[in-house]
Simulated assay, not measured.
Amino acid sequence: MDNSNKRAAIVAGLVSIAGLIGSGSASAAPQPDAATGEYCVTTLKKLKPGETASEVVSRQCGNDPAIATSAASAENVLVTLYTDNDYKGHWEMFFGQDGPCDQSGYGINSVGFEMENATSSLITHSWCNDVTLYNWVGRDPGGGTYRLRSLGTEISGWEALPGFNDATSSLHLSQY
C-alpha cells in the first residue's frame, strides 16, 4: 500500500470515528433506565406548556450510598423515594434543573428499575407538596393513582404509603 492509500485509509477511519462521536445516539439525553443501581440521582427539566414528561438531563446510579454526598449539597432536590417505610432502604433522588416546583411542576414517566413498584416512603422538597403517584409507567392513570398533599410546606414527608405501597411506577410533582 503506497503512502496516499494509507493516508486515505486513515482519513476514512477518522471520519468514521468522528461520525460515531457526533451521531445523535451519542448526544441524546439519557433515558430514565440508562443507569441502574440501588441508589440513583436523576436531574430533570421542568415541564413546559404542552409537555407531559420532564426531560431527563442526567442520571447517575450505583450500589454505594456515598452518591448522596455529592447530591446532598445540591439545590432543588424535588423528591427522594425509598424502598422501605421510614425513609430507609434503597433510594432515588430527583433534582429540578429549572428550580423548585410550581403549578406545572415535573412529570416523571419512570422512576427507574430499582424503584418501580418498590416505593414505600418518600420525602418531597422545593415546594413539591402536591404529588400524584401512578401504578403504570408514563403516568397512565389506568393502573391506579394515589394523591398526596401537604398544604403550605416546603418539605413534606410520607413515612409510609399504606394505600399505595410498592405500587409506584411514575409520578407528577407540583406546588399546591
Results as ranks from 00 to 15, higher is better:
Arg147Leu: 01
Lys46Gly: 07
Lys45Ala: 13
Ser73Tyr: 13
Lys45Gln: 15
Asn76Tyr: 06
Phe95Lys: 15
Glu75Thr: 13
His90Tyr: 11
Gly163Ile: 04
Cys128Met: 01
Gly105Asp: 03
Ile123Trp: 05
Lys88Ala: 15
Leu133Trp: 12
Arg59His: 06
Ile123Phe: 02
Ile108Met: 07
Ala66Lys: 15
Gly143Ile: 02
Tyr146Cys: 08
Thr83His: 04
Ile155Gln: 12
Leu44Gln: 08
Asp64Gln: 08
Cys40Val: 03
Met93Lys: 12
Leu161Phe: 03
Ile67Phe: 06
Arg147Glu: 05
Gln103Leu: 13
Met93Leu: 12
Val111Thr: 02
Thr43Ala: 13
Ser150Asn: 11
Arg147Asn: 07
Asp102Arg: 11
Leu171Asp: 04
Ser110Gln: 09
Gly144Ile: 02
Thr153Val: 12
Ser156Pro: 05
Glu154Trp: 03
Trp127Arg: 10
Phe95Trp: 13
Leu81Phe: 14
Ser73Gln: 15
Ser170Lys: 02
Ile67Lys: 03
Val41Gly: 05
Thr153Gln: 09
Pro49Arg: 12
Ala167Val: 02
Thr42Gly: 03
Leu161Ile: 03
Val57Cys: 07
Val56Thr: 13
Asn117Tyr: 06
Cys101Pro: 00
Thr124Cys: 01
Arg139Asp: 02
Lys88Gln: 14
Lys48Tyr: 10
Ile67Trp: 04
Gln175Lys: 11
Arg139Met: 06
Ile108Tyr: 04
Asp64His: 07
Gln103Arg: 15
Cys61Asp: 08
Ser70Trp: 15
Glu159Cys: 08
Glu114Cys: 07
Asp86Glu: 07
Trp158Thr: 00
Gly62Trp: 14
Gly37Met: 11
Asp130Cys: 05
Thr80Met: 12
Ser169Asn: 06
Gly143Asp: 06
Ser121Pro: 04
Ser150Trp: 08
Ser120Asn: 10
Ser120Trp: 05
Ala66Asn: 14
Leu161Glu: 02
Thr168Trp: 00
Thr80Gln: 13
Glu154Gln: 05
Gln60Cys: 11
Thr145Gly: 02
Arg149Asn: 10
Gly50His: 09
Glu159Asp: 11
Pro65Gly: 14
Asp98Arg: 03
Gly37Pro: 08
Val79Trp: 03
His172Ala: 13
